[in-house]
Amino acid sequence: MTDKPQTLRIANRDFNSRLILGTGKFASGEIMASALEASGAELVTVALRRADLSGQRDKFANILTFIDAKKYVLLPNTSGARNAEEACRLARLGREATGSTWLKLEIHPDPRYLLPDAVETLKAAEVLVNEGFTVLPYINADPVLAKRLEDAGCATVMPLGSPIGSARGIETRASIEIIIEQATVPVVVDAGMGAPSHAAEAMEMGADAVLVNTAIAIAADPERMAEAFKAAVAAGRAAYEIGLAVKRTEAEATSPLTGFLNEP
């Protein structure tokens, strides 16, 4: 008998896909749209920036025209915010711009490592949850902070595997394991997923979803790489739901240990 894969529930919404896609860095809106379709993702991030008022628009000015709002849940992010106050302003602008109350809360003032500011993130989360946002905060893999954000009413916690765009995979494994063990909201491993195997590893560990952008966006064939990540996420999740083999110190033979040629 084969059990059906478990659906992902965030806030009051069910998702069949456990892959969340970021839309940044694709060579064009069309390429992003084809990768999005191939990824099977149902939750997709966008950013907000000042409009170019000089009359010369940038090519990504109309990102929403490439995303079918009926098919995908839009997750505007607060990237560019340096503190809680700016994040709250961006959140409100994002809600008005997209019509979505879902929010990827991210506050990373340092451009070199883009590591999230825990203090400002918690401060902003408390305000925004009270304003009715469904808040998905991007955080360092800090189990105590994850608990605090959960207590504040966040819909998920999204610990980083490694810095944004670094493609280094899960360098925070021990802390993410604690977060997963303790969480009562979904845990989304966000950032640093450079290869499908990284995404599969997160899912095998029991993460509820992964958020991937750069590795798909800058691939030579983003559509095919999106398919590869989709397959990896599904494989990792299936293995987790079924239960992985227990690690052992010594070998355990897979062939019978009787009937050898040299037996008396």
Binding site: G22, T23, G24, K25, F26, G29, M32, T45, V46, A47, L48, R49, R50, A51, L53, D58, F60, A61, I63, L64, P76, N77, S79, R89, L93, G94, A97, T98, I164, L211, N213, T214
Partner: peptide
């Protein structure tokens, strides 16, 4: 005024 537009981003 801040005039803001949704753009591609992760």
């Amino acid at each position: 005024l801040e005039v803001i537009v949704p753009v591609a981003g992760g």
